[in-house]
């Protein structure tokens, strides 16, 4: 069992909901990423999703696009992100998923990247633009490396596909709660409950719901339908505003703690 699986097993046994947090690696620089990771661990984050900056992030809204640009501008590369994960591992066992576009793995070779990521202490990969149909070698390599392939389910995914995805998934299933790119919204989608129920018909795995959750109230609301919630752009936006401010980690950490508290308060009510 890797860190993701044992974290969700623990959450389940404690009947708690989880918090998954996304940030862009190297924004504003990789040392800040390391500090944020340690801060998040203390703040009660269950899984850290690290976005590896890519030149053409076509699944991302403007907030995360700008974070990727700042990451690239600070000289961040896929291998320097892995080195940062290894640095984080000296002080923390927080489960880490890399959120990454396929070309960055393809460039160095899938087997090579997966081996390097596992060695650095990465626990899972979420490859935005690699659907299961194109991913035959991928799963065997991930299994061998002891990492979880995290698959997305979207509102457009029909039941037959959910079943196929669920069969391949490990760790958790990520439900993208709306059609669109990453980003904040003033209201969350109303169909989340229906969709998580449909996914549960095909899988025992925990379901994390993301895309558009930006404040504690939304976090609490969505957490009633899910095993975990994912918050990204709202945090990335705060990082953008603070930049190289020395209190970056502390201030962002305080916001993340408010999200963790909200998710925990939702844990009391049944899904």
């Amino acid at each position: 069992m890797n860190r993701i699986e044992s974290r969700f097993a623990r959450l389940r046994s404690q009947q708690r909901k989880g918090l998954v947090v996304y940030i862009g690696a190297g924004d504003p620089h990789l040392e800040a990423t390391r500090q944020l990771a340690l801060e998040f661990d203390q703040a009660g984050v269950d899984v850290l999703e690290l976005g590896v900056p890519f030149s053409d992030p076509l699944a991302d809204g403007v907030v995360n696009q700008l974070a990727a640009q700042r990451g690239l501008a600070s000289g961040t590369t896929p291998s320097s992100v892995l080195k940062t994960v290894a640095d984080i591992r000296r002080d923390s066992q927080i489960p880490i998923v890399l959120y990454i576009y396929f070309n960055l793995l393809h460039r160095v070779g899938l087997d090579h990247f997966i081996a390097q990521a596992a060695a650095a202490g990465v626990d899972g990969l979420l490859i935005l633009d690699l659907p299961p149909e194109e991913a035959d070698d991928y799963e065997a390599l991930m299994r061998k490396a002891g990492m979880c392939p995290i698959w997305l389910v979207a509102p457009t995914t029909p039941d037959a596909r959910i079943e196929r995805i669920a069969r391949r998934a490990q760790g958790f299933i990520y439900y993208v709660s709306r059609e669109g790119v990453t980003g904040m919204q003033s209201t969350v989608s109303t169909s989340i409950g229906d969709m998580t129920q449909r996914i549960r018909q095909h899988s025992q795995l925990p379901i994390a719901v993301g895309f558009g959750i930006s404040n504690p109230d939304q976090a609490r609301e969505v957490a009633t339908h899910a095993d975990a919630i994912v918050v990204g752009s709202a945090i990335v936006n705060r990082i953008a505003q603070l930049g190289s401010d020395p209190t970056l980690a502390a201030q962002v950490g305080a916001f993340v703690r408010s999200l963790a508290d909200a998710v925990r308060s939702a844990s009391a009510s049944p899904a």
């Binding site: 076509l58 699944a59 396929f102 935005l128 633009d129 690699l130 659907p131 149909e133 194109e134 698959w151 997305l152 389910v153 979207a154 509102p155 457009t156 995914t157 029909p158 596909r161 995805i165 993208v176 059609e179 669109g180």
Partner: peptide, 12 residues
């Protein structure tokens, strides 16, 4: 070739 797209686009 192939179809390397985010999940939301696969079914459409």
């Amino acid at each position: 070739g192939g179809r390397y797209v985010p999940e939301t686009l696969v079914y459409p």
